[in-house]
Design a protein around this nucleic acid. Structure first.
Length: 531
RNA sequence: GCGCCGUUAGCUCAACUGGAUAGAGCGUUUGCCUACGAAGCAAAAGGUUACAGGUUCAAGUCCUGUACGGCGCACCA
């Protein structure tokens, strides 16, 4: 959190003399400039203060000299560069070191409740690689928010009514007949995967009569199992079928508030001229059935009514056209649509040896989440799927992922963690123990301070993830942290003849390990002691 | 036709609110195991950020247009 703290300090100092200090950047300068941070503050403020940036830079630099936490202030054009003072670095690190697991929790987040809804796949077949990305994103976001101190719940919406499950039922029925040699017609658009046969066989074996319910339960059992193998535990499975009465009430409410109208024998959500959705949508079909949309509004109404401060939905980008209408519906219900945040992730294009794998649940042609976990492991799969920003499409080549397993970045990061464990094992063997009192100030080597500075920035990375609602920044951080850790390890011997130095370095790798582990925990990737 | 997302090194991707000489990993090349794990380290090569305009002190980032790719545009879910 070093960056966040510095920004606060700088802002408060400058506010004593200037008004309207705008928000500004604090980032690492280009490699040729030897300092820790650079800021564009003079450039950013020159407009407000109506003073040329270069002049302002010199003035600001004078003020910044009063801040004990920074040193070596230089002005280059409209930029100000500076280093953090050793005292400030060591003090920051010491604070992180002494704090417990909850170091990054913000007390003010404690009262905020967030509901993350993700995967929510139709229960018509096993989860596939696309759902894996959704699961990884939603799950890691939940960990992120927990780490920041929010109260988080994870929910999965089960679409267990409507056409899709009807087709599922018909598909299973057809297979039962086939297995029993009863002549019958195969439904149009039927699901063709091998699992349909499995369900049919089970039903015959058990003599089940409620085919739809059994099929849905069977598939959901598999879903829970698959998610479990992917280390995703959902707090609540919310069944669409439980919303019937809520939807009845919702439509009455809409009708009473003139939010809906009848036309062509159907009931429409009249919203066209009032919001972000470009046309009116059907709520109740001519057949009398509710549309998915109607029930989904009821679902979101239920979620809003439960009083969360924020609703995060993780959706595949193929649903982007749906965002406007659900937000419009939330608004129509009188809720703050800003509280509903939709994270759209681009779909995963799956390849096998460079060849694109066609995927379609209906044709039964897909690579399941389970297969991916079995082939490349949950760690590699999760890390790989989380390395990209949600907006970025992911190309997942199973052959490459399998073949290059040992070169996958996840192993690089895990190795740094395991390596630290092994140093501690060695220390123990030699009777060297980490003492409570740490003298950070003797860690003056470049590799040592470089690693310390990065560790001190982990909190900033978490805040960035929160802002972007993406944990991919953590993967970038972890790779960098592992690199700096390995670099330190090569340059500085941890256990050496100098007891005081050994102790400080043990503390350094301890805090590095804790930070790497926390990052991996958020991603849902294991942090092994040995590999 | 309209809309959303993308196009950055040979490959896969980063790049915070527009900031300085655009960064990682893989692959390629060259060094490094008689001290805590070589699943490692150090170094090198590799770029007109798809293209063309515009905005400004400053553009990969914002605006307009074009090309290419993915996805939407249901009384499906």
């Amino acid at each position: 959190m070093i960056k966040t703290r510095l920004k606060e300090i700088i802002t408060s100092v400058l506010n004593l003399k200037y008004k309207d200090i705008p928000d500004f950047l604090l980032n690492t300068p280009p490699g040729s400039i030897k300092c820790d941070f650079a800021t564009n503050l003079p450039l950013a403020a020159s407009k407000n203060l109506k003073v040329p940036a270069q002049k302002l830079a010199k003035e600001f630099a004078e003020e910044l000299k009063k801040i004990p936490q920074i040193r070596d202030i230089t002005v280059v054009g409209g930029f100000i560069n500076f280093c953090v003072s050793d005292e400030f670095l060591y003090e920051t690190i010491s604070g992180i070191y002494c704090a417990g697991e909850k170091i990054y929790e913000n007390p003010s987040n404690k009262v905020k409740r967030i509901l993350i809804e993700f995967v929510s796949s139709n229960p018509t077949g096993p989860l596939h690689i696309g759902h894996a990305r959704c699961a990884a994103i939603g799950d890691s976001l939940s960990h992120l928010h927990t780490a920041l101190g929010f109260s988080v719940e994870k929910e999965y919406y089960v679409n267990d009514s409507g056409n899709q499950v009807e087709i599922l039922k018909n598909s299973v029925e057809a297979r039962i007949n086939e297995l029993k040699n009863i002549p019958s017609q195969f439904p149009e658009n039927e699901y063709k995967g091998a699992y349909i046969y499995d369900i049919a066989r089970e039903i015959i074996k058990r003599g089940e009569t409620d085919i739809k319910k059994f099929a849905v339960d069977y598939i959901m059992d598999g879903t829970v199992r698959d998610l479990d193998s992917f280390r995703v535990v959902v707090d609540r499975y919310f069944y669409e079928s439980s919303l019937k009465e809520n939807t009845d009430k919702l439509l009455e409410e809409f009708a009473a508030n003139a939010k809906s109208y009848e036309s062509d024998g159907a009931l429409w959500f009249g919203n066209k001229n009032q919001s972000e959705d470009e046309k009116d949508r059907v709520l109740r079909k001519r057949t009398g059935e509710y549309t998915y949309f109607a029930t989904d509004i009821a679902y979101h109404k239920d979620k809003f009514a439960r009083g969360y401060d924020e609703l995060l939905n993780v959706w595949g980008a193929d649903h982007h056209g749906y965002v406007g209408r659900i937000k419009a519906a939330a608004r129509a219900l009188g809720y703050d649509a800003e509280k509903l945040k939709i994270i759209l992730y681009q779909l995963v294009s799956l390849k096998r040896g460079g060849k694109k794998v066609a995927m379609s649940t209906r044709s039964g042609e897909f690579v399941t989440l389970k297969e991916v976990v079995d082939e490349v492991g949950a760690d590699a799969a999760r890390f790989f799927l989380l390395m990209r920003a949600p907006d970025s499409p992911v190309e997942f080549d199973l052959e490459v992922a399998k073949k290059q397993t040992s070169e996958n970045p996840v192993y690089y990061v895990q190795y740094a963690h395991a390596r630290i464990s092994s140093v501690f094992a060695e220390a123990k063997k030699r009777g060297v123990e980490l003492k409570e009192e740490i003298n950070w100030a003797i860690l003056t080597e470049f590799a040592e301070k470089d690693l310390l500075k990065l560790i001190a920035s982990f909190g900033d990375v978490l805040l960035l993830c929160r802002k972007d609602l993406s944990t991919h920044h953590i993967t970038v951080f972890l790779i960098e942290a592992a690199k700096k850790m390995h670099n330190f390890y090569e340059k500085c011997r941890v256990i050496n003849d100098d007891a005081s130095m050994s102790n400080s370095r043990l503390a350094l790798i301890k805090i590095a390990q804790k930070t790497i582990k926390l990052g991996l925990d958020i991603l849902g990737v294991s942090a092994p002691e040995r590999m």
